[in-house]
């Protein structure tokens, strides 16, 4: 599972995919949403490296973070073609209200169970999304989706395996996993919200309507939860967060995360690294 020179070369080539194609304003905005989802999640998974419960997980979470960072780079690169900005311009020199990620991705790592719950919902959603996006009429988005879907399939498998282990392990791990599901579930709804942009793109066959991905997502989660003997939250703690990430409104977690991510790049504007 180690990233050797060859595997890394492929990751680093990320930003060359889609070279030559210039995204339209709508496609750029859409790529920004997907790119920010991936970037913010990669940033958080990177924090686990050297803190994970076992060495195998330092490697696995690092691997998943690295895949997501690769997706983010390609998507941001493509988004930037519309306005002549680079992936780094977009990652490091936009402020919080210009970020377009959904709230799920900016929820903090928490304990390992919270990270796994976030991974389960994120990767199940991303798997359905990239699967549908693979037949996009936009050839660049389609190419990115084909590559990403294979990787996200592994991410989803990793999250499912750990959901089963934690829910079916010890009393302590089960208690934590149930709590993690309760805390994370409110952020699922936003992933499947349609708006004017995705409706325009769906009409052109560029992107699937997020709402169209929901039945497949629900079916997978239902299967995993049945095996894990977990339940979708109901009652007083079954919240649904309002969302707003696609319009640049965020939870309190994104600002500090960006401040940390951007601090060095912003201290040396114009520098090359």
């Amino acid at each position: 599972m180690s990233v050797d020179q060859v595997a890394l070369a492929e990751e680093l080539a990320g930003s060359s995919a889609g070279a030559g194609h210039v995204a339209s304003a709508d496609v750029a905005e859409y790529a920004l949403r997907l790119g920010d989802d991936a970037l913010v999640l990669a940033q958080q998974l990177g924090m686990w490296i050297s803190y994970a419960p076992e060495l195998e997980e330092d490697i696995a979470l690092g691997n998943i973070g690295l895949d997501l960072l690769g997706h983010a780079r390609t998507l941001l690169h493509y988004a930037g073609t519309a306005t002549g900005r680079s992936e780094d311009d977009l990652a490091y020199f936009r402020d919080e209200p210009e970020f377009r990620n959904a709230w799920l991705f900016e929820q903090p790592n928490g304990d390992f169970a919270h990270t796994i719950a976030r991974q389960l919902f994120a990767s199940t959603y991303l798997y359905e999304l990239y699967g549908a996006l693979s037949s996009s009429t936009d050839p660049t988005l389609a190419a990115i989706a084909v590559k990403s879907d294979k990787e996200v399939d592994y991410h989803r498998d990793h999250a499912i395996q750990w959901t089963l282990r934690l829910a079916g392990g010890t009393e302590e791990s089960r208690r934590r996993m149930i709590l993690a599901v309760v805390d994370t579930w409110p952020y699922v709804e936003e992933l499947f919200a349609d708006d004017a942009l995705v409706e325009r793109l769906a009409a052109e066959g560029v992107a699937p309507l997020p709402s169209s991905l929901r039945p497949a997502f629900d079916a997978v989660i239902a299967r995993v939860f049945a095996e894990a003997e977990l339940e979708i939250p109901t009652g007083r703690t079954a919240f649904t967060a309002s969302g707003g990430g696609r319009e640049g409104r965020h939870t309190e977690h994104l600002g500090p995360m960006l401040a940390e991510m951007q601090v060095l790049a912003r201290a040396h504007p114009g520098a090359s690294w």
Partner: peptide
């Protein structure tokens, strides 16, 4: 420095490197 790497390319290289070290440990 993973969270503060000054470019996405450097971030990817650094993550891969630290991950390699975990692999060496294994």
């Amino acid at each position: 420095w993973i969270t503060r790497a000054p470019s996405l390319k450097r971030k990817a290289i650094l993550m891969a490197k630290v991950q390699d070290e975990a692999g060496h440990g294994l």
